[in-house]
Amino acid sequence: MSKIVSFEDLWCVFEHRSGQLVNALQNVNFQVKSGEFVCVVGRSGHGKTTLLRVLAGLQPPTAGRVRLGDEVATGPGADRAMVFQQDTVFPWLHVRENIEFGLRAGKTPREDRERITQHWLAAVGLEDFADSWPRELSGGMRKRVALASAMAVGSDVVLMDEPFGSLDYFTRRNLHDVLLDLWRETQKTIFFVTHDIEEALILADRVILLAEGKLVDDIPVTLPRPRDEDVRASEKAVNITKVILAHLGITEEEATRA
């Protein structure tokens, strides 16, 4: 069963080429229950991606640690699969082989592998493209492949670093639905980094706000699902938006002007 993910006194300090020290993360402390959908929101350059990379094990923290249950998470591994902002689908593998990659690495037996792959191909609606090359797919379909690959390794925690940032509005909305369906079905813990407040309101159980590397607020989003236009226009949702904007240093007038 999924484990609690806890960030304990997490610091991440980078050194610029000029020798200047930059605090990408400053004393971040919070816990995430299993099966929660957490959105990490903040301006660009304020530590969102760093937080995710530390959690993924791609970036060692300067101080503090990340725990999965009782274990300290160190290097990258299949227990924290990640979907990236860039296109990271392996162009030299067919769609099916892409989804199989993590399973092969984990030495899953052949029959299981085929069954699981088939399941996830169906789940993201790409059965007809199983033997296509990634270059033959559209950007949104490639994202589905990445999503399926991350889901298929069977990790309890899935990390997403602005995965839909480069997609058009309609594709993005469509993928939100796909993602939410998968989440409901699998009960995985999902960390979703975004700078889009609307996206956070559609997806999240909880919004973690980062500013200058500090955790400035932890907002529970208790809106009813599915979160259609009406729900997002409700007073509660608007209030959450206002809180987030205020924390990010944007007043309401600025927001409306922009």
Binding site: G57, E71, V72, T74, G75, P76, G77
Partner: peptide, 13 residues
């Protein structure tokens, strides 16, 4: 190397 080291550590733990 990182992948290798990470693997080694998890196995060690």
């Amino acid at each position: 190397g990182a992948a290798g080291a990470a693997r080694a550590e998890t196995i060690h733990e």
